[in-house]
């Protein structure tokens, strides 16, 4: 496979010791109709290079808000946000992002969609020059031969795989994944999760994924940051010490089940704290 030929991410990333993402005492409030709502309260997490961290929690716990803050799409109201040792002001160069919707542009072929970030960063010429790389990525996600199709000719799962290629084309060090497969059916989703996990590990990328599915979180994560709502905060952290190279078969193992139980317990404690607090 062409994975071997896959170029290294930003040189010198090994030179920077310490966490790749550092969030310390971050608060975020929104004001709507004169009422102030606290979306995030005193959130602190760090993500090490190569780590797969999952933000798990019910809707309203601020997990997507936190992801948007890391992505530089949303400023924190207060607190420290660092990516690669630099304070986040605007969109950090090291990130690639994916959403629940593939958001492929219907007027561009799959190939042109994947090359879009290159075109935006370096112009049309560079995008044309990146075609070999686009082919490699298509191979990588099993979309070989689909490059010249239009997005609406592909299924939802295939569209999300194209979105993965688009995210990877600029070689981002950090993958920010906002429920990327949330709109897919259970089977496709399981398959895509496995593929995403495999890709992230093989390419040595760092990932932060948002989900509200406990099983999905345990399956993917090296570490689960469990969040609870009102106000959004970190309720606890679960280290998942399952071996890498996970397949769906692992989900029936007792270890897997015990991690699911742990995460559920932290979620519940966070929830009852919310009720009494």
């Amino acid at each position: 496979m062409s994975v071997v030929a896959y170029p290294d991410p930003q040189p010198g990333r090994d030179a920077a010791p310490g966490p790749l993402i550092r969030i310390e005492g971050v608060n975020r409030t929104f004001t709507r109709d004169g009422k102030t709502v606290t979306a995030l309260s005193d959130v602190s997490i760090t993500v090490a290079p190569g780590e797969f961290v999952v933000l798990l929690g019910p809707s309203g716990c601020g997990k997507s808000t936190l992801l948007n803050i890391i992505a530089g799409l949303l400023p924190a109201t207060s607190g420290l946000v660092e990516v690669g040792g630099q304070p986040v002001t605007g969109i950090p160069q090291q990130i690639g992002m994916m959403f629940q919707k593939a958001t492929l542009l219907p007027w561009r072929t799959i190939r042109e969609n994947i090359a879009l970030p290159v075109q935006i960063a370096q112009g049309r010429k560079a995008a044309r020059a990146a075609q070999a790389r686009v082919d490699d990525l298509l191979d990588l996600v099993g979309l070989r031969g689909f490059g010249d199709q239009w997005p609406n000719e592909l299924s939802g799962g295939m569209q999300q795989r194209a979105a993965i290629c688009r995210m990877l084309v600029t070689n981002p060090e950090i993958l920010l994944l906002d429920e990327p497969f949330g709109a897919l059916d259970e089977f496709t989703r399981e398959h895509m999760n496995m593929q995403m996990l495999d890709l992230t590990h093989r390419l040595g990328r760092t990932a932060v994924l948002v989900t509200h599915s406990i099983a999905e979180a345990v399956f993917l994560a090296d570490r689960i940051v469990v969040m609870s709502a009102r106000p959004g905060r970190v309720a606890g952290v679960v280290d998942v010490k399952l071996p890498r190279g996970r397949t769906p078969a692992i989900t029936t193992s007792p270890e897997f089940q015990s991690y699911v139980e742990q995460a559920r317990q932290v979620l519940q404690d966070g929830h009852s704290a919310e009720m009494t607090g």
Binding site: L73, I95, Q100, K101, T103, I120, L176
Partner: peptide, 11 residues
Amino acid sequence: DADKMFATMRA
């Protein structure tokens, strides 16, 4: 989401 995606591409 498309708008957000363009933002993350630093368009």
